[in-house]
Nucleic acid binder design. Structure first.
Lengths: 171, 171
DNA sequence: TAGGTTTGTTTCAAACTTGAACCAAGCCCC
DNA sequence: GGGGCTTGGTTCAAGTTTGAAACAAACCTA
């Protein structure tokens, strides 16, 4: 089939998107590196753990939630563990499993740096959009994310809150 | 001042955005790694050069266009040079300058892989959006990019097409 | 229940990115 | 016309990411 090139409008949208993503991620990384001594992804790991009832999540679930590879997560958690911000527990029910937990120190770092982070997100993104655009943003990227179902994501939510994927739980 | 936390809607938008960006970039990187043997950024370097009348651009301008650091670009161009896809020329007017040029081989790789790339971009993004949403996407990220003016971007377009920043040209 | 497959996680080497430092080369101005 | 500042680019070390391979435990199934 002959290529369906992007229309001029699509091209403009694509370019604006690509440029913005780069700029926003860089700004976010720099801000968090400054304030929290870690890049955005690492902060997100802490944040994700903190939102869980017990502040723990299995590696695979955490990786899936953050849309990153397990190997990338392993590396990141190892670093955060060295910094004392997260810990690892063995999963009692599935001896293969490893559970990342947010430590008290990790929680403190998060609480200390969250306001600055949110402020940055606002400055970079939300402050520049109208309320309608915020809604549009949500719809657009919800649609985009949904395009990936099956490759990842799976059903979700399970009996044990920090264990969201397959039917089994642990710890 | 007390932190302006994100509203539930803003949070949903932010999360959907973050997740989508990760998924889209990963998919794009994988696709291009497969078809072109290089990650998305490297492909973008070739693409950007190809859109220039003479298929050459000064390093700084290229970096600015792509919103990346000069050092990152230096590394990338060095790799692409090894692969024979881009070359470096000295700038005759400003002896400090270095000009990246797209080679014939580079152009061929681009032409061969562009259709697959565009198809992927469609599959990941545009095929999932309504025409109105494409327009919204453009407006949203144009607004976001504009938030960075002054930190980068500068005036643009100059007398010599592949030299877009300061008043001088070369080669 | 042994053997084979799948799943959860880590490991390893190679590739890439970051930021600070460095080296020229242009510029400015007294 | 010789400092001193700025700009264009590269280099270097440290940190991060990638993808494939390695392992181990769990899960079939004959």
């Amino acid at each position: 089939m002959t290529t369906r090139w992007l229309s001029p409008e699509e091209q403009r949208a694509w370019r604006a998107y690509i440029a913005s993503v780069a700029l926003v991620e860089d700004a976010l990384d720099r801000q968090l590196q400054q304030e929290a001594g870690m890049p955005h992804l690492y902060y997100s790991i802490l944040a994700t753990l903190s939102e869980t009832p017990e502040r723990k999540l299995r590696m695979t679930d955490l990786a899936e939630e953050l849309k990153i590879t397990r190997s990338r997560l392993t590396y990141a958690v190892t670093r955060l563990e060295k910094d004392g911000l997260v810990g690892r527990e063995d999963c009692r029910w599935d001896k293969r499993g490893s559970i990342a937990t947010l430590t008290e120190d990790g929680m403190r770092v998060l609480e200390r740096t969250a306001p600055g982070h949110v402020e940055t997100v606002r400055a970079l993104l939300f402050d520049r959009l109208t309320p309608e655009q915020v809604g549009q943003l949500e719809e657009i990227f919800t649609a985009v994310s949904e395009g990936f179902q099956g490759e990842d994501a799976r059903p979700t939510a399970e009996d044990v809150p920090w264990r969201r994927r397959s039917g089994k739980s642990c710890s």
